[in-house]
Design a protein around this nucleic acid. Sequence first.
RNA 1: GGCGCGAUGGCAGAGUGGUUAUGCAGCGGCCUGCAAAGCCGUCUACGUCGGUUCGAUUCCGGCUCGCGCCUCCA
Length: 457
Amino acid sequence: MLKIHNSLAREKQEFVPIEPGRVRMYVCGMTVYDYCHLGHARVLVVFDMVVRWLRASGFQVTYVRNITDIDDKIIRRAAENGESIRALTDRFIGHMHEDATALGVEKPTHEPRATDYVDRMLEMIGRLERNGYAYLSGNRDVCYSVRKFAGYGRLSGKSLEDLRAGERVDVAEGKHDPLDFVLWKHAKEEEPAEVKWASPWGSGRPGWHIECSAMGCDLLGEHFDIHGGGQDLQFPHHENEIAQSEGASGGTFVNFWMHNGFVRVDDEKMSKSLGNFFTIRDVLGRYDAEVVRFFILRAHYRSPLNYSDSHLDDARQALSRLYTALKGWPAGGGVDWSEPHARRFREAMDDDFGTPEAMAVLFDLANELNRTRDGRIAVQLRGLGGVLGLLQRDPVEFLQSGAGGELAPEDIEARIAQRAAAKQARNFAEADRIRDELKAAGIVLEDSPAGTTWRRA
RNA sequence: GGCGCGAUGGCAGAGUGGUUAUGCAGCGGCCUGCAAAGCCGUCUACGUCGGUUCGAUUCCGGCUCGCGCCUCCA
């Protein structure tokens, strides 16, 4: 049985779906005004893994990952670039999809854009107003009255008093309480028409939090199973989502909240504001995308993940071991879940998505495969790897891939043929010279009774 | 200041009240013309001080250090 660490309870809980056999899940996606960085890659990969495991466990999953395409930073960036909001967001949505695809991330069931849901947001704001949670502030923004919502602070484990004690925000003009947040931003003169929508409260645009409540409730219903996102969204974003959704519906919004840990650089959070981020495409220029996915899944999703080149190098070595074991075995065949390794894998994954332990099982399978050369083990290894979105390529293709390939495969093959001839003539000095020369170029040769093969170091 | 998380071997990273994580790297052996890969074996651990216990890396408390959230952020 699956257990999930629920941020709401701060402990692992047995996962029971609202509707038997079915899971409805929402994850906060990207704000599209720039390239995705490795922190985004982690959210993408982690929740892709979660969905894959839920499906492998027999659930029918509806997975929604939204796109925020209206926001202060988007407006500013579009103005800087002298382009329309739509042109900017369309472009970066395209780039995001390229990155996600490279990382082996499957498409979500729905990928709603905030700007397509403004009507739903207005409807929800209207309900909040009728239920007494929303008010029109002095500067004509519509705000949410945090103290009216009894459960406020439950997700982040904060009380309103705690939050006020640490108050660091300038009190925005006209708010009843500094912690109140904006549901609807009143339009400003200088803003382009593209960011103005008509509403009962005047022309304006939605606040950030309302979009997720509106899209989630519309696509998944007012009560669904899992809501995920990065740790930094726990407060205030997710706290506010709960306040909005439950304030509007009157019932429970989400049963399980999941938050993934940060990617770090030199033990500091990787973030745009700190400027210490690497974009996904930077990294994919130097490392194989599957290596990056492997690197992400090698740590537990809630732990911090330190990024560095040496860690990626290490990940590549490790993944190579798996593919080396798989070399020569045909693809295909389903996982036998009654087999001991598969059971251990299932146990690991059922314990709050324990991918590090699940991967240890993969290495144990590789060892057994190398020892026994039993085809059934190869099927298990590839099959279980596939559950994590790994090991689905041709092993030779993986082992021969990699950056820094000045030598074309034909050249390498030609050198191998020359070396074979030298060996035939028992001219080992010449054979070793060729091998050393290739090694200097990053090519490693491996002799076997069947002939010589090569891979990139 | 408030709230929370973490501290494991050279590096990365799981887990457990008493018996091997796993990977990378190192060392020894087998294999090999020599290598590489693989196999076998092997060395480096559980921040610190107390407590509970027959026994704690694992439970409890103090301390130190690191990190995060409290402001846009995955």
